[in-house]
Write a protein that binds this DNA or RNA. Structure first.
Length: 420
DNA sequence: TCTGGGGTCCTAGGACCC
DNA sequence: TCTGGGGTCCTAGGACCC
């Protein structure tokens, strides 16, 4: 049996852990740039605050009900996530970390009382991290996802557990489960299914294999089999190596000046190159992406991206910045108000596997030691303490808005909670 | 004024191989 | 007039996930 454990309203719950004054009160968390409401705890949801809607539209409602509003604090959420996963690892032989707030795990065969096991999971995570989790248990991953949805419906907060272990439960649950809530069924496919009169998971599993394969590709077929209790997806205990990584962020305001966009890009390249070095990859390709604000109907729109192949894979911020700047000048067009720039590294390889370029006359100097020093300084004195000149000194002009940021309680010594 | 960021997988179609 | 069969690799675009 597979269990899916997920943290209830993860971001909002992280904010509450260190703020007892907010326990039982409505809390929401905003997306980057304080743009949209992206997480709300149960108290906030019951006020009818919409997710993924611009925050400014909900502000009157938030103010009226005294909702606590936070900017996203990813260092905090990332660290809390790690604690949850480490706790779960103590209770299962096989753990797949599926997302920042979810994990699939194999229920040990010695566990005969699944309800009791799930309750022990919840209790341990809560005791060790302060976070509330829900647990869904079923024979396949897709059914565990369904079960975890059912767990959320439990009125009694102290339960939040649902087990699909027998055929009767499986068919009963699926007959009442909205097809658009299935794992792998997004908005587009849901619309197509509903147009054919398929509204529940049970109706979906009754479709013919041929039709599902034709219309929804192999993914649809896999989902169908998973839902009928035939596991198709194994637990990914050792995650396959990453294929790409990137950094792309909206600016605090729309930018028309190429020089500022160039600085932001250099800053993102440096951030992403840190990720590259930390995870011990070299990048073989680099893509730069540029776009205007798609929500501005009064302004002309422009979106473009360009990829370049590096002659030799690298993790050198200086080399990557140079390539990224060249790529940007290929796609930058004056006269637009830009909202976002981003960089993606792909063709990731391990340093041992690098093939040298036979024809490159001069691969350029190696900056391994400079990079190591930069990383050490920034770790010790904070991100951005030491940066390249390309990243500029006008960050105020384009940096994210984060007006309601909570302290980094668990990852920054200056911001650790003080108890008297 | 204000609308997220970081990923993966699949398919179709073109270029190219023998 | 008539124009194969079996493949690989790459890219762009679409769909999905949290």
């Amino acid at each position: 049996m597979i269990a899916l454990v997920d943290v209830n309203s993860f971001y909002a719950s992280c904010e509450q852990v260190f703020r007892p004054d907010l326990w039982g009160r409505p809390v929401v968390v905003l997306s980057n740039n304080d743009g949209c409401v992206i997480a709300a705890n149960r108290e906030a949801k019951s006020l009818g605050i919409p997710m993924w809607k611009p925050a400014y539209q909900s502000m009157p409602l938030l103010d009226r009900h005294g909702v606590a509003v936070f900017s996203s604090n990813y260092p905090l959420y990332g660290d809390m996530s790690r604690r949850v996963m480490e706790t779960l690892a103590t209770m299962t032989p096989d753990l797949e970390v599926y997302s920042i707030d979810e994990a699939f795990l194999r229920v040990p065969t010695s566990e005969t009382d699944l309800q009791a096991y799930a309750q022990r999971l919840r209790a341990r995570v809560h005791q060790w991290t302060g976070l509330p989790v829900g647990v869904g248990i079923a024979p396949s991953k897709a059914l565990a996802k369904v079960a975890s949805r059912m767990a959320k419906r439990e009125r009694d907060r102290s339960r939040n557990v649902f087990v699909i272990a027998d055929e009767e439960t499986r068919t009963r649950v699926l007959s009442d489960f909205p097809v658009e809530d299935l794992w792998g069924i997004g908005r587009r496919i849901a619309t197509r299914l509903q147009a054919r009169g398929v509204n529940t998971a049970a109706q979906f599993t009754a479709l013919s294999d041929a039709w599902v394969r034709q219309e929804l590709t192999v993914n649809g077929l896999r989902l169908k089999r998973e839902l009928t209790g035939h596991p198709q997806l194994s637990l990914e205990v050792d995650p396959p190596p990453k294929k790409m990584m990137g950094t792309a962020k909206s600016f605090g305001r729309d930018l028309t000046e190429e020089c500022l966009i160039r600085e932001a890009l250099a800053y993102y390249v440096a951030e992403c190159a840190v990720k590259l070095r930390r995870q011990k990859f070299l990048a073989g390709n680099l893509t730069v992406y540029l776009e205007t604000n798609p929500f501005r109907e009064d302004a002309p729109q422009y979106v473009n991206q360009t990829e370049c192949r590096l002659s030799v894979p690298t993790d050198d911020t200086l080399a990557l910045t140079r390539q990224a700047e060249a790529a940007l000048s290929r796609i930058f067009r004056p006269g637009y108000a830009y909202k976002k720039v981003g960089v993606w590294f792909s063709g990731l390889v391990r340093p041992q596997a690098v093939q040298q370029d036979l024809f490159a006359a001069d691969p350029g100097p190696r900056h391994d030691r400079i990079m190591a020093v930069m990383d050490r300084v920034n770790l010790r004195y904070g991100k951005g303490s030491l940066q390249t000149g390309a990243a500029g000194f006008r960050r105020e002009e384009w940096k994210l808005r984060q007006e309601r940021l909570s302290p980094r309680y668990t990852t920054c010594l200056e911001e650790v909670l003080t108890v008297r």
